[in-house]
C-alpha cells in the first residue's frame, strides 16, 4: 500500500459529529450547540431560522399549560388503496407512528390560549411530511365542526408537503372537504386563524391553510403551491433568492404577518381579545 494513500474510512470518522450534540442550521448552515437551540424554542440563535417542531412541542408552546384536551387521538389510516411503492404504505405508516408517537400527521383538540377557549389543529411534518390523507382531512373537519358547535375560535398550524400520494384521490378530495367545512365555519362570527410553519405546500396550502381569516407565518418558512424543484425543472430558470419564503409572501400580499415563534402566543391572545372577547373564561 502506498504511503500517501488516503484512508477514507478513518477520515470520515474523524469529522463525524457526536450524535445529537450539535445541529446544523438549515438556513445559515452554521453548526450550533443543540441545547442552545432548544433553549431558544428551536430557533437558530445565529440567523433566526425557525426549526421544524413536532405537533406536541407546538401545542405546548401555544396553549396555557395543561389545558390541551386532545380529540380523535386514535383515528388512523387503513390504507384504503392497499398502496405499495418500494415500500408498502402500511409500513411507512408504522414507521411514522413509531417515530412520532402519533397515530397520524395531525393533532387536534380543545385548549385555552391566554384563557380563551379555542379549537386547535396542528400538523406534524415529522409524520410522512405532514401530508393530508383521509385521517388528516377528517380530523380537521371534526375539529372545525366542534368549533362551530361550541362557538369557538379555530386555530390551525400547517406544516406539510401537501396531499398524501398513498391515498390517491381520497387525499385530493380532503382539500374540498376541509374547504367545505371552513365555508360553513365562516358563516359564524368567530375567527379562523392559520399559522404557516416551514414548509406549507400543495394540497394543504391550496385548501384550509390559505383560507384563514388571518394568516400568520413564521420567519423564513417556505410556503407555496408547487415545490421549488418542480418549478425550476419546468421553467428552466433560477428562482429569485427569497422565492416562496414567508417574507416573499408578505411582500406579495398573501399573508397578514410574520411573527417570531416566541411571540406567537401573545399575538394569538391579542387577536383573540379583539375578535373573540366575549368567550374568555375567567
Amino acid at each position: 500500500m502506498a504511503w500517501f494513500r488516503r484512508d477514507k474510512g478513518s477520515a470520515s470518522k474523524k469529522v463525524k459529529v457526536p450524535e445529537g450534540l450539535w445541529i446544523k442550521c438549515n438556513s445559515c448552515r452554521e453548526i450550533i450547540y443543540r441545547k442552545e437551540v432548544e433553549k431558544n424554542l428551536k430557533v437558530c440563535p445565529k440567523c433566526n431560522y425557525h426549526f421544524r417542531i413536532s405537533a406536541s412541542e407546538r401545542i405546548s408552546l401555544l396553549v396555557d399549560s395543561g389545558s390541551f384536551v386532545e380529540i380523535e387521538k386514535e383515528m388512523e389510516s387503513i390504507d384504503p388503496l392497499n398502496f405499495k411503492d418500494l415500500m408498502p404504505y402500511k409500513e411507512r405508516l408504522k414507521d411514522a407512528q413509531q417515530k412520532t408517537n402519533m397515530k397520524e400527521a395531525i393533532s387536534c383538540g380543545k385548549a385555552l390560549i391566554g384563557g380563551y377557549p379555542v379549537m386547535l389543529a396542528v400538523l406534524d411534518f415529522g409524520f410522512m411530511g405532514g401530508s393530508m390523507g383521509s385521517v388528516v382531512g377528517e380530523k380537521f373537519t371534526i375539529t372545525t365542526e366542534r368549533a362551530m358547535d361550541e362557538e369557538l375560535p379555530l386555530i390551525a398550524v400547517a406544516s406539510s408537503g401537501g396531499a398524501r400520494m398513498q391515498e390517491g384521490m381520497l387525499s385530493l378530495v380532503q382539500m374540498a372537504k376541509t374547504s367545505a367545512v371552513i365555508a360553513r365555519y365562516k358563516e359564524r362570527h368567530m375567527p379562523y386563524i392559520t399559522i404557516l410553519a416551514d414548509p406549507t405546500f400543495g394540497g394543504v396550502s391550496a385548501s384550509f391553510a390559505m383560507l384563514g381569516d388571518i394568516i400568520i407565518a413564521e420567519p423564513k418558512s417556505l410556503i407555496g403551491f408547487a415545490g421549488a424543484r418542480v418549478i425550476e425543472q419546468t421553467i428552466k430558470q433560477q428562482l429569485p433568492e427569497n422565492f416562496q419564503t414567508a417574507e416573499f409572501l408578505l411582500d406579495h400580499g398573501m399573508i397578514d404577518m410574520i411573527v417570531d415563534r416566541k411571540e406567537l402566543k401573545q399575538t394569538l391572545i391579542r387577536i383573540l381579545s379583539l375578535t373573540a372577547g366575549s368567550s374568555k373564561t375567567e
Binding site: M75, S134, E138, T141, L170, V173, Q174, A176, A180
Partner: peptide, 8 residues
C-alpha cells in the same frame, strides 16, 4: 364531500 375519506 363531507363523507369522503376512509379511516379507522
Amino acid at each position: 364531500f363531507r363523507t369522503m375519506g376512509v379511516f379507522k
